[in-house]
Amino acid sequence: MRFLLLLLPLSLFANLNIAVSYPYIGALTKSIGGENVEVVVLANGNWDPHFVVPKPSLISKVRNADGLIMNGGELEIGWLPPLIKKAGNPKTNVNAKTFLNLSNHISMIDKPQSVSRSGGDLHPEGNPHFNLDPNNILILANAIKEYLSTIDSKNSHVYEKNYVIFSDMWKKKIELWNEKMLSKKGVKVVQFHNILAYFNKAYKIENIATIEPLPGIPPSSKHTVDTIELIKKEQPCCILHDVYHSTKTAEFISEKTGIKIVLIPHDIGALESVEDLTSLFDYLTSAIK
């Protein structure tokens, strides 16, 4: 019986069936889409967004979707293209109007001056982790509202209404977070991979080093020694560590310098208590004690 249910076409259940790459996009799309939209999230929130397992079940999810929303900025380059190719769904093709690349709506930072893999696994378009600035969430919510209104114009009033509700709520939250982060201005931090670039920019937090010597290149002993020296000199508050890289090197650095390690979520589901967009930023804004 359960198997039969599994075989039923998904389109029977919802108005619009939108596949999204990451959980935060799912939550945002659900907030704007409301009951008209069924959201299918492709990636796990607790794993490295660069390395998503292209499970065959994801092909079916893309195949059955009425549209696809991705983060962009090459974050999905290692896993999404073959899924789109194999799904053979015109609605999820890159140039379809039902395809939304969120990075097109954000002016990305840290765009490398010169692009060469000798500098690690660089993103030529800039740092793609723009979802961690709460101000960007508003821009993305607007982009998703516009997108849903275009592909489902008869319900555009619903999306407009949901957007207003969401943005009012979110603006209040931003004020709260701004207040909370005011005292953290100028604080120095260390990360494993620079996923907090946008968050740090928003709250004037200074990232002085990453544990990985270059983007995507695992820690080397020389770089670790240099980082320890830098930490001793600059006295950053803490290592804000993502949940998916091993904390082994961070622990070693902590042992040598006494610096605190704080696990930080990069998306919904990264940590157990991070269940929605609000709790994601509640957590992030409480990370620096």
Binding site: L6, L8, P56, I59, S60, N64
Partner: peptide, 12 residues
């Protein structure tokens, strides 16, 4: 020619 079935379970 390949056809992926419109099911939630991957079937090709």
């Amino acid at each position: 020619l390949q056809w992926t079935a419109p099911t939630s379970t991957y079937l090709m």
